[in-house]
Amino acid sequence: MQALYAQLLVGLINGSFYALLSLGLAVIFGMLNIINFAHGALYMMGAFCAYFLLNLAGIGYWPALIIAPIVVGIFGMILERTMLQWLSGLDHLYGLLLTFGIALIVQGVFQNYFGSSGLPYAIPDELKGGMNLGFMFLPIYRGWVVVFSLIVCLATWYLIEKTRLGANLRAATENPTLVRAFGINVPRMITLTYGLGVGLAALAGVLSAPINQVRPLMGADLIIVVFAVVVIGGMGSIMGSIITGFSLGVIEGLTKYFYPEASNTVVFVLMVLVLLVKPTGLTGRAA
Protein backbone atom coordinates (compact mmCIF):
# COMPACT_ATOMS: atom_id res chain seq x y z
CA MET A 1 0.00 0.00 0.00
CA GLN A 2 2.93 2.31 0.76
CA ALA A 3 3.95 2.18 -2.91
CA LEU A 4 0.42 2.93 -4.04
CA TYR A 5 0.20 6.06 -1.88
CA ALA A 6 3.65 7.14 -3.05
CA GLN A 7 2.59 6.83 -6.69
CA LEU A 8 -0.64 8.66 -5.92
CA LEU A 9 1.44 11.52 -4.51
CA VAL A 10 3.67 11.58 -7.60
CA GLY A 11 0.48 11.61 -9.64
CA LEU A 12 -0.87 14.56 -7.68
CA ILE A 13 2.39 16.47 -8.22
CA ASN A 14 2.37 15.80 -11.96
CA GLY A 15 -1.29 16.75 -11.87
CA SER A 16 -0.36 20.10 -10.30
CA PHE A 17 1.97 20.82 -13.20
CA TYR A 18 -0.62 19.72 -15.76
CA ALA A 19 -3.18 21.97 -14.05
CA LEU A 20 -0.90 25.01 -13.87
CA LEU A 21 0.23 24.61 -17.48
CA SER A 22 -3.17 23.82 -19.01
CA LEU A 23 -4.67 26.70 -17.03
CA GLY A 24 -2.13 29.08 -18.59
CA LEU A 25 -2.75 27.61 -22.04
CA ALA A 26 -6.51 28.07 -21.61
CA VAL A 27 -6.20 31.69 -20.42
CA ILE A 28 -3.85 32.55 -23.30
CA PHE A 29 -6.02 30.79 -25.84
CA GLY A 30 -9.06 32.67 -24.62
CA MET A 31 -7.50 36.09 -25.18
CA LEU A 32 -4.98 35.60 -27.97
CA ASN A 33 -6.49 32.68 -29.87
CA ILE A 34 -3.05 31.14 -29.84
CA ILE A 35 -2.00 27.73 -28.61
CA ASN A 36 1.25 28.57 -26.90
CA PHE A 37 3.68 25.86 -28.00
CA ALA A 38 6.42 27.76 -26.15
CA HIS A 39 4.70 27.00 -22.84
CA GLY A 40 6.99 24.06 -22.08
CA ALA A 41 10.09 26.11 -22.91
CA LEU A 42 8.91 28.93 -20.65
CA TYR A 43 8.24 26.41 -17.86
CA MET A 44 11.86 25.32 -18.30
CA MET A 45 12.99 28.96 -18.20
CA GLY A 46 11.22 29.36 -14.85
CA ALA A 47 13.25 26.49 -13.41
CA PHE A 48 16.50 27.85 -14.88
CA CYS A 49 15.67 31.30 -13.54
CA ALA A 50 15.46 29.85 -10.02
CA TYR A 51 18.72 27.98 -10.64
CA PHE A 52 20.54 31.15 -11.78
CA LEU A 53 19.15 33.19 -8.90
CA LEU A 54 20.52 30.66 -6.44
CA ASN A 55 23.89 29.99 -8.05
CA LEU A 56 24.76 33.43 -9.43
CA ALA A 57 23.10 35.81 -6.97
CA GLY A 58 22.63 33.62 -3.91
CA ILE A 59 18.90 34.29 -3.92
CA GLY A 60 17.06 31.32 -2.48
CA TYR A 61 13.88 29.40 -3.19
CA TRP A 62 11.30 31.70 -1.58
CA PRO A 63 12.22 34.92 -3.42
CA ALA A 64 12.69 32.85 -6.61
CA LEU A 65 9.09 31.69 -6.31
CA ILE A 66 8.08 35.32 -6.93
CA ILE A 67 10.98 36.66 -9.01
CA ALA A 68 11.15 33.84 -11.59
CA PRO A 69 7.50 34.07 -12.72
CA ILE A 70 7.83 37.86 -12.98
CA VAL A 71 11.07 37.69 -15.00
CA VAL A 72 9.76 35.00 -17.34
CA GLY A 73 6.40 36.77 -17.49
CA ILE A 74 8.14 39.95 -18.67
CA PHE A 75 10.07 37.90 -21.23
CA GLY A 76 6.71 36.54 -22.39
CA MET A 77 5.20 40.01 -22.64
CA ILE A 78 8.15 41.11 -24.78
CA LEU A 79 7.50 38.11 -27.06
CA GLU A 80 3.86 39.10 -27.28
CA ARG A 81 4.61 42.76 -28.06
CA THR A 82 7.33 42.04 -30.62
CA MET A 83 5.94 38.97 -32.38
CA LEU A 84 2.63 37.42 -31.35
CA GLN A 85 0.59 40.61 -31.68
CA TRP A 86 1.29 40.70 -35.43
CA LEU A 87 -0.58 37.44 -35.85
CA SER A 88 -3.99 38.68 -34.79
CA GLY A 89 -6.44 38.18 -37.61
CA LEU A 90 -4.41 35.38 -39.18
CA ASP A 91 -5.26 31.69 -39.03
CA HIS A 92 -4.72 30.20 -35.54
CA LEU A 93 -2.22 27.76 -36.97
CA TYR A 94 0.35 30.51 -37.49
CA GLY A 95 0.37 31.16 -33.75
CA LEU A 96 1.16 27.50 -33.16
CA LEU A 97 3.97 27.58 -35.73
CA LEU A 98 5.47 30.81 -34.37
CA THR A 99 5.47 29.65 -30.77
CA PHE A 100 6.88 26.27 -31.88
CA GLY A 101 9.77 28.22 -33.44
CA ILE A 102 10.24 30.20 -30.23
CA ALA A 103 10.31 26.94 -28.25
CA LEU A 104 13.00 25.52 -30.56
CA ILE A 105 15.12 28.66 -30.15
CA VAL A 106 14.84 28.79 -26.36
CA GLN A 107 15.40 25.06 -25.88
CA GLY A 108 18.26 25.02 -28.38
CA VAL A 109 20.08 27.89 -26.68
CA PHE A 110 19.79 26.29 -23.26
CA GLN A 111 20.86 22.90 -24.66
CA ASN A 112 23.96 24.48 -26.11
CA TYR A 113 25.10 25.77 -22.79
CA PHE A 114 23.81 23.11 -20.42
CA GLY A 115 23.64 19.90 -22.48
CA SER A 116 20.78 17.54 -21.81
CA SER A 117 21.64 16.38 -18.32
CA GLY A 118 19.95 17.66 -15.17
CA LEU A 119 21.26 20.32 -12.79
CA PRO A 120 20.47 19.79 -9.11
CA TYR A 121 18.38 22.30 -7.18
CA ALA A 122 18.20 21.73 -3.44
CA ILE A 123 14.96 21.63 -1.48
CA PRO A 124 14.75 24.73 0.78
CA ASP A 125 15.63 24.03 4.42
CA GLU A 126 12.14 24.86 5.70
CA LEU A 127 10.58 22.12 3.57
CA LYS A 128 13.15 19.38 4.06
CA GLY A 129 12.34 16.08 5.70
CA GLY A 130 9.02 14.35 5.90
CA MET A 131 6.04 13.49 7.99
CA ASN A 132 4.74 10.10 8.94
CA LEU A 133 1.01 10.17 8.31
CA GLY A 134 0.49 6.68 9.71
CA PHE A 135 -0.47 5.13 6.38
CA MET A 136 2.41 6.67 4.42
CA PHE A 137 5.56 8.78 4.64
CA LEU A 138 4.97 12.25 3.18
CA PRO A 139 8.01 14.26 2.06
CA ILE A 140 7.07 17.79 3.11
CA TYR A 141 8.25 19.44 -0.10
CA ARG A 142 6.01 17.23 -2.23
CA GLY A 143 3.01 17.96 -0.04
CA TRP A 144 3.82 21.68 -0.31
CA VAL A 145 3.89 21.56 -4.13
CA VAL A 146 0.43 20.00 -4.30
CA VAL A 147 -1.13 22.38 -1.77
CA PHE A 148 0.53 25.51 -3.14
CA SER A 149 -0.36 24.66 -6.78
CA LEU A 150 -3.95 24.09 -5.77
CA ILE A 151 -4.04 27.49 -4.05
CA VAL A 152 -2.53 29.22 -7.11
CA CYS A 153 -5.01 27.47 -9.42
CA LEU A 154 -7.98 28.48 -7.28
CA ALA A 155 -6.67 32.04 -6.98
CA THR A 156 -6.43 32.26 -10.76
CA TRP A 157 -9.94 30.89 -11.06
CA TYR A 158 -11.14 33.51 -8.56
CA LEU A 159 -9.31 36.29 -10.40
CA ILE A 160 -10.88 35.42 -13.73
CA GLU A 161 -14.37 34.33 -12.69
CA LYS A 162 -15.12 36.57 -9.70
CA THR A 163 -13.29 39.90 -9.96
CA ARG A 164 -13.97 42.99 -12.03
CA LEU A 165 -10.67 42.58 -13.84
CA GLY A 166 -11.64 39.03 -14.72
CA ALA A 167 -15.04 40.19 -15.94
CA ASN A 168 -13.34 42.67 -18.29
CA LEU A 169 -11.06 39.90 -19.46
CA ARG A 170 -13.90 37.52 -20.20
CA ALA A 171 -15.80 40.29 -21.96
CA ALA A 172 -12.76 41.06 -24.11
CA THR A 173 -12.52 37.37 -25.00
CA GLU A 174 -16.10 37.44 -26.28
CA ASN A 175 -16.01 40.76 -28.10
CA PRO A 176 -12.79 42.81 -28.05
CA THR A 177 -14.13 45.63 -30.21
CA LEU A 178 -17.06 46.36 -27.94
CA VAL A 179 -14.89 46.25 -24.82
CA ARG A 180 -12.49 48.74 -26.41
CA ALA A 181 -15.41 51.04 -27.03
CA PHE A 182 -15.93 51.14 -23.23
CA GLY A 183 -12.47 52.66 -22.90
CA ILE A 184 -10.64 49.55 -21.79
CA ASN A 185 -7.17 49.08 -23.21
CA VAL A 186 -7.61 45.64 -24.74
CA PRO A 187 -4.14 45.28 -26.34
CA ARG A 188 -2.53 45.96 -22.96
CA MET A 189 -4.87 43.45 -21.41
CA ILE A 190 -3.85 40.85 -23.99
CA THR A 191 -0.18 41.45 -23.19
CA LEU A 192 -0.81 41.13 -19.46
CA THR A 193 -2.85 37.97 -20.01
CA TYR A 194 0.01 36.40 -21.93
CA GLY A 195 2.33 37.45 -19.11
CA LEU A 196 0.00 35.85 -16.57
CA GLY A 197 -0.22 32.55 -18.47
CA VAL A 198 3.54 32.46 -18.95
CA GLY A 199 4.10 33.38 -15.29
CA LEU A 200 2.01 30.38 -14.23
CA ALA A 201 4.19 28.15 -16.40
CA ALA A 202 7.36 29.64 -14.88
CA LEU A 203 5.95 29.13 -11.38
CA ALA A 204 5.36 25.46 -12.18
CA GLY A 205 8.97 25.35 -13.36
CA VAL A 206 10.29 26.69 -10.05
CA LEU A 207 8.11 24.25 -8.11
CA SER A 208 9.39 21.30 -10.13
CA ALA A 209 13.09 22.30 -9.96
CA PRO A 210 13.83 20.50 -6.64
CA ILE A 211 11.85 17.41 -7.69
CA ASN A 212 12.75 16.85 -11.33
CA GLN A 213 16.09 18.70 -11.55
CA VAL A 214 16.65 21.54 -14.02
CA ARG A 215 17.00 20.32 -17.62
CA PRO A 216 16.77 22.20 -20.94
CA LEU A 217 14.28 19.66 -22.31
CA MET A 218 12.19 19.33 -19.13
CA GLY A 219 9.29 21.16 -20.77
CA ALA A 220 9.49 19.66 -24.26
CA ASP A 221 7.86 16.31 -23.52
CA LEU A 222 5.65 17.74 -20.79
CA ILE A 223 3.97 20.21 -23.15
CA ILE A 224 2.77 17.37 -25.41
CA VAL A 225 1.11 15.64 -22.44
CA VAL A 226 -0.42 18.98 -21.46
CA PHE A 227 -1.80 19.33 -25.00
CA ALA A 228 -3.50 15.95 -24.54
CA VAL A 229 -4.83 17.18 -21.18
CA VAL A 230 -6.21 20.28 -22.90
CA VAL A 231 -7.86 18.16 -25.60
CA ILE A 232 -9.45 15.95 -22.93
CA GLY A 233 -10.64 18.82 -20.75
CA GLY A 234 -11.45 21.37 -23.40
CA MET A 235 -10.43 25.00 -22.99
CA GLY A 236 -13.88 26.35 -22.29
CA SER A 237 -13.66 26.52 -18.52
CA ILE A 238 -10.96 27.43 -16.01
CA MET A 239 -12.24 25.08 -13.34
CA GLY A 240 -12.45 22.34 -15.96
CA SER A 241 -8.74 22.74 -16.72
CA ILE A 242 -7.82 22.53 -13.04
CA ILE A 243 -9.93 19.45 -12.34
CA THR A 244 -8.84 17.67 -15.53
CA GLY A 245 -5.18 18.43 -14.81
CA PHE A 246 -5.24 17.02 -11.29
CA SER A 247 -7.39 13.99 -12.19
CA LEU A 248 -5.18 12.98 -15.10
CA GLY A 249 -2.13 13.25 -12.86
CA VAL A 250 -3.79 10.90 -10.36
CA ILE A 251 -4.83 8.47 -13.09
CA GLU A 252 -1.26 8.46 -14.37
CA GLY A 253 0.00 7.79 -10.84
CA LEU A 254 -2.41 4.87 -10.43
CA THR A 255 -1.28 3.45 -13.77
CA LYS A 256 2.33 3.62 -12.59
CA TYR A 257 1.36 1.38 -9.69
CA PHE A 258 -0.93 -1.09 -11.42
CA TYR A 259 0.55 -1.27 -14.92
CA PRO A 260 3.84 0.67 -15.12
CA GLU A 261 4.44 -0.10 -18.83
CA ALA A 262 1.49 2.09 -19.78
CA SER A 263 2.27 4.98 -17.44
CA ASN A 264 3.65 7.33 -20.10
CA THR A 265 0.95 6.50 -22.63
CA VAL A 266 -2.16 6.44 -20.44
CA VAL A 267 -2.99 10.14 -20.91
CA PHE A 268 -2.81 9.78 -24.70
CA VAL A 269 -4.96 6.65 -24.63
CA LEU A 270 -7.53 8.48 -22.49
CA MET A 271 -7.46 11.32 -25.02
CA VAL A 272 -8.34 8.87 -27.80
CA LEU A 273 -11.19 7.41 -25.72
CA VAL A 274 -12.58 10.85 -24.88
CA LEU A 275 -12.42 11.90 -28.53
CA LEU A 276 -14.32 8.79 -29.58
CA VAL A 277 -17.03 9.26 -26.95
CA LYS A 278 -17.30 13.03 -26.56
CA PRO A 279 -15.28 14.86 -29.25
CA THR A 280 -15.74 18.32 -27.72
CA GLY A 281 -13.80 17.34 -24.58
CA LEU A 282 -15.19 16.82 -21.12
CA THR A 283 -15.94 20.45 -20.29
CA GLY A 284 -15.51 22.11 -23.65
CA ARG A 285 -18.13 23.65 -25.82
CA ALA A 286 -18.03 23.01 -29.56
CA ALA A 287 -15.02 24.83 -31.02
Partner: peptide, 9 residues
Protein backbone atom coordinates in the same frame (compact mmCIF):
# COMPACT_ATOMS: atom_id res chain seq x y z
CA UNK B 1 17.79 23.59 -33.65
CA UNK B 2 18.11 27.29 -32.88
CA UNK B 3 18.49 28.15 -36.57
CA UNK B 4 15.43 26.05 -37.39
CA UNK B 5 13.51 27.95 -34.74
CA UNK B 6 14.66 31.27 -36.19
CA UNK B 7 13.54 30.17 -39.66
CA UNK B 8 10.14 29.21 -38.23
CA UNK B 9 9.74 32.61 -36.60
Amino acid sequence: TVIQGVIFV
